[in-house]
Amino acid sequence: MSHTAHIPSHRKPRRSASKLALRAGVAGGVLSTIAVAGAAGPASAEPVTETIEMPTLGSLGTDLSSAVAASAEASQQEALDQSLEAQEAAALQTAAKEAKKAKAEADRKAEAERAEKARQEAEAKAERERAEAEARAEAQARASRDSARTQLSTTSASSDSDSGSGSSNDSGSSAGSSSESTQVSSGTAASIVAFARAQVGDAYVTGGTGPNSWDCSGLVQAAYAAAGIDLPRISYQQSSMGTSVSLSNLQPGDVLYWGSRSGSYHVAIYVGGGKYVGAQNSSTGVVERSLDWDPPSGAVRLL
């Protein structure tokens, strides 16, 4: 038995093909050098004294491994740099798209704000012009009503003066008395009609009693008050007074009513010519209308 039998055998690691090729190349080079030196030896008088120092196989393997590792690291770094460049390019492209989109949205909002501002300014201007037009119309209507009321007062005073004069001249005759009664009645009716017509164009307001807004019974009450006649405030109370008359026998100053006489819900003043003046509603205000526009239920005469 061998004296080394007790030592476990170990299989040597297999050398890679590249290392075997390298060593074979190095060995071949050494043998070639020796062969050349041997062929020249007998003919030369001087022995070979120069020694060629060859690299060891261990150092060559280490250098090769270092070179391979460095090449792999360089390749990996280059691949990483290219990946970073691609990511940066993609990020720049995305940022450019987002910036373009944000700019378009900002432009759209700015345009919408400008349009809204222009619309509000146009509406405000139209509202100012409408208010100014209404104010001018109201001022003209007020001036017209004031003029009509002044004329009404002058006419009423003249009628009262003429009536008093006629009464003193013919106090003892029945004909004179009848003439006076006719003049007073005509003057009173004219005053009522003139006052009612002077309010046309005023607003309708529930409970309104003037001077620039009325409801139906408030207007009738004020028109009769202008002629010196007191009437109740409520429409059914007004239509319950006086004498009932046919719609075919109306006279200026008669009170028209809608509904039953003792339960009327609307009243107006007949002004002659088949027309009446009344505070109709909040949409129309005080108007002068034909009887056909809204035929009344009946009429009463208070004069």
Rank of each mutant, 00 (worst) to 15 (best):
T94A: 15
S18Y: 02
P47N: 08
A27V: 01
L92K: 09
A67D: 07
A79E: 10
A69L: 12
A69V: 05
E111I: 04
A131E: 09
A90C: 00
S18H: 06
K125V: 09
A74F: 05
G29R: 06
L80N: 11
E46I: 04
E78K: 12
A110D: 11
L22V: 03
L57D: 10
E46V: 14
G28H: 06
S59M: 04
Q120L: 13
L57G: 12
E138A: 15
Q82W: 00
E85T: 10
H6Y: 03
E113P: 00
A135P: 02
I34W: 02
S66R: 13
A95R: 11
D63R: 14
V26Q: 08
S32T: 13
R23M: 12
E88Q: 13
K97N: 07
E132S: 12
P42F: 08
P47E: 08
E46M: 08
A110K: 12
D107P: 02
K101W: 02
R128E: 15
H10G: 03
T94H: 07
E123C: 02
K19H: 11
A39M: 07
I34H: 07
A37S: 11
E111Y: 03
A135Q: 09
L31R: 13
Q87G: 10
S16L: 04
A17R: 12
A104E: 10
P42C: 05
E88W: 04
E85A: 14
L64P: 00
R114W: 00
E105G: 04
E105T: 11
S44P: 00
I52G: 04
V30Q: 12
I7M: 07
I34L: 15
A21C: 00
R130Q: 14
M54N: 05
P13D: 08
T49N: 04
T94R: 13
A21F: 00
A124T: 06
A5I: 04
R14T: 09
H10I: 08
T62S: 15
S16Y: 01
L22Y: 03
G58T: 13
V26K: 03
A115I: 03
K109Y: 06
A37N: 09
E73H: 05
A91C: 01
R136L: 14
G61W: 03
Q76E: 09
H10R: 13
Q77I: 04
A141I: 00
S71M: 08
D81V: 11
S18A: 15
A37Q: 12
A91N: 08
A122F: 04
A115Q: 14
D81A: 15
T4R: 07
V68L: 15
Q140D: 08
D107G: 03
P42Q: 09
S9Y: 11
A131M: 02
A40W: 05
